[in-house]
Design a protein around this nucleic acid. Structure first.
Lengths: 208, 208
DNA sequence: TGAATCCTAGAACGATCGTTCTGCATCTCT
DNA sequence: AGAGATGCAGAACGATCGTTCTAGGATTCA
């Protein structure tokens, strides 16, 4: 519950603070960094949120409700199938904003903080679980429609998809060239298309 | 160049120090941790290797020459094809030693330190480049033998493979259950098998 | 046995961190 | 205009870190 007077500017400042965590990660971000680059005073952070950890968790929830929600949008359509899963991966090839160099804060947090702080692990687990559920549901719908082979296990596809997202963002943070990410996404799409019923499943390789 | 008297016990102590970095990551490991758990005195670390960063880089090279070399073995056979690439991924499902919970130190370092320290980035880049080359070479051989479609781009397959490795180890470090990793590897194998020439490429789904 | 060498434990330094406190400027409202 | 709440910058505390230094115990070899 931050003070009233600055509430008008608060939103923008929280976004700036979020981006600091996003760039540098949790441990490498100091309160000084946050304060200097967001305009939020230490008192606002401590008075309003308690400590660094709680402040971070609040911003992590904020990240989920904005960036993650936008990325999940294709999969959250009530009749989403694996076609939307392909679109979900495809969108990462043309990223706006900061994400093109920073990757995904949830995935970064998953490897950096998740094992150290229980409360953060819960947030990350929920993110991974949501992603799993969405892909799984899409796969079930695809199977009902006969768009994938009936032997396809939605849980296997969902786990694969979650791992693919983690791998994608690990690549972004790694020293690999941008072209490699495009190749990787292409591979994931190839996998998804390979789930389709036998006839013609083989030769859909050269597509975009 | 550590002192002479303790050289007999040095190897085992370096391995212990390596495991501390492997467990906790570079930044979360203090010299105290290293000293206490490995038996190496601070003076041995500083006198022998200069500072924490150089000591870490030496252990990273050591890691490459032992663990990584062992994992790369199937792909380093002079006539390795994508069959060996499948075996390469398959071996991560039955990991001995510490790796089953700790993942891969190179991949951990890639996301944690690589962007901060130039000299470490070079080591990680070389690791990623080696992996890329091995998968690429295997793909070229498979293509020469007609085991994959002639339109298959070895660079795309190699980049996909590298991303798949990063994703695999990101999963291991994440809160995801162990079963998800098995599903993920299964998916990667499905991708690799999907590269085979059209006839019959579709229905090889239920295999181990 | 004695001297040179090596190993270890501990203190110490400067830096940085998360967090709290204090003093003062600024704003809101009657 | 004046009182009270709210804003900020800086100092300060205790903890931890990487790194260096020092003193003394242990080991090796003539």
């Amino acid at each position: 519950m931050p003070r009233i007077r600055e509430r008008s500017r608060l939103e923008g400042r929280l976004d700036k603070a979020l981006k600091v965590f996003w760039e540098k990660g949790y441990y490498d971000t100091s309160i000084e960094d946050l304060s200097a680059r967001s305009g939020l005073n230490r008192d606002v952070i401590y008075g309003g949120y308690g400590n660094k950890r709680k402040f971070f968790e609040m911003l992590l929830a904020r990240y989920r409700d904005t960036y993650v929600a936008r990325w999940f949008a294709p999969l959250e359509m009530p009749d989403a199938t694996l076609v939307q899963a392909e679109a979900f991966f495809q969108q990462f090839l043309d990223l706006p904003d900061p994400a093109d160099k920073l990757g995904c804060l949830m995935c970064l947090t998953s490897s950096e903080v998740s094992s150290h702080i229980r409360s953060v692990e819960r947030i990350v687990s929920r993110f991974l679980g949501d992603l799993h559920s969405l892909i799984r549901a899409a796969c079930v719908r695809s199977r009902e429609r006969g768009e994938v082979r009936p032997t396809t296990d939605p849980d296997v596809v969902a786990d694969y998809g979650v791992g693919a997202v983690l791998g994608l963002w690990a690549m972004v943070r790694s020293p690999m060239p941008r072209s490699a990410i495009a190749h990787y996404v292409k591979g994931v799409r190839t996998y998804l298309r390979g789930l389709r019923p036998a006839r013609g499943a083989g030769e859909i390789d050269g597509g975009v």
